[in-house]
């Protein structure tokens, strides 16, 4: 089942509960009005609309693209689109080239610039957190173990039984379902976690039922080939600072279209080079042979 997050900006009151919950669940220091960085995965930005002077709150986080540019860019496949819907990053593979950061159309991945063993950091859709369960085994020192018997590490932290319980609490919603910490914390249901198809249907329903309250666009439905975070708004997304110049097709396709031609290019160019070599080589052989005959003849004459 593929998950997604629906952010209804018309409901957001800008309280910042999502940001705080995200910091708590990852054990990051809590900051006032943080920017997106290696220790903060989501922000609330206040935008004042030019014409009306109204204030809007815009939430920023990883979009968990259906076809993530970051994952296609990564040469070692450290970033993966999981079946769960989340796009996750693997510490053990990354070599730190930062191509993912350049490639992301939403400028999401951040870097630990001051670390000597820097990691790429971004919203994980609480992937690991949502998969922590109360019945996971502990080792002698009291740390939670995963199925393969390794200690579970989340954002660089080994998880104790106590941490586990906090995390489970932060990622369990009112219906007793596991959900992202930001959605659990949101008091207005402006951020909802759920199944992608259902959330998309819900977003459509809201627009159809109250066409006056929304602009007729679900940001994230088609952008960059579809994402797993949907936004609804009652003012144009452009005026809120969303990128509106993104194409509705997959970004990884842009490079794959070239890469998939490589076998053909290699074969064609290889044959062409071979042919040129053969022809020019042959030409020289012939020349040499003719010269030999000539010199033999002239010798004979002499």
């Amino acid at each position: 089942m593929s998950h997604a997050i629906l952010v209804d900006l018309t409901l957001c009151v800008g309280c910042g509960a999502c940001t705080t919950a995200c910091q708590q669940v990852h054990n990051f220091p809590e900051k006032e009005n943080p920017t997106l960085d290696d220790k903060n995965f989501t922000t609330i930005r206040t935008v004042t609309e030019n014409e009306s002077g109204d204030e809007y709150y815009v939430r920023k986080m990883c979009r968990h693209c259906e076809e993530p540019a970051c994952a296609s860019a990564c040469l070692v496949g450290a970033l993966t689109k999981t079946k769960d819907g989340a796009v996750t990053w693997d510490t053990n593979k990354c070599i730190g080239c930062r191509y993912c950061m350049l490639a992301c159309p939403f400028d999401i991945p951040k870097y630990e610039w001051s670390s000597m063993s820097p990691k790429v950091r971004k919203c994980t859709m609480c992937y690991q957190e949502r998969h922590l369960t109360a019945d996971m085994e502990l080792d002698d020192a009291g740390y939670v173990l995963d199925a393969s018997g390794e200690r579970v590490v989340i954002e660089g932290r080994e998880i104790t039984a106590e941490d586990r319980d906090t995390i489970i609490e932060l990622t369990t919603n009112m219906d007793d379902n596991r959900a992202s910490a930001c959605s659990v914390a949101c008091p207005m249901e402006a951020t909802v976690f759920g199944e992608r198809d259902q959330l998309l249907a819900e977003a459509k329903r809201r627009i159809l039922e109250s066409p006056d309250d929304y602009v007729p666009r679900i940001y994230g439905q088609k952008e960059v080939g579809g994402t797993s975070v949907f936004y609804l708004s009652n003012v144009s997304f452009e005026s809120l600072g969303f990128y509106t110049n993104l194409e509705n097709s997959s970004y990884p396709d842009k490079t794959w279209r070239v890469l998939e031609k490589i076998p053909d290019i290699v074969v064609t160019a290889g044959v062409a080079l071979g042919a040129v070599y053969w022809i020019t080589n042959r030409r020289e052989d012939v020349k040499r042979y003719e010269e030999e005959i000539k010199s033999k003849r002239s010798k004979k004459k002499a």
Partner: peptide
């Protein structure tokens, strides 16, 4: 860890 979809890998 080869990712054939990555230009950088190539």
């Amino acid at each position: 860890y080869q990712n054939p979809h990555s230009v950088l890998f190539e």
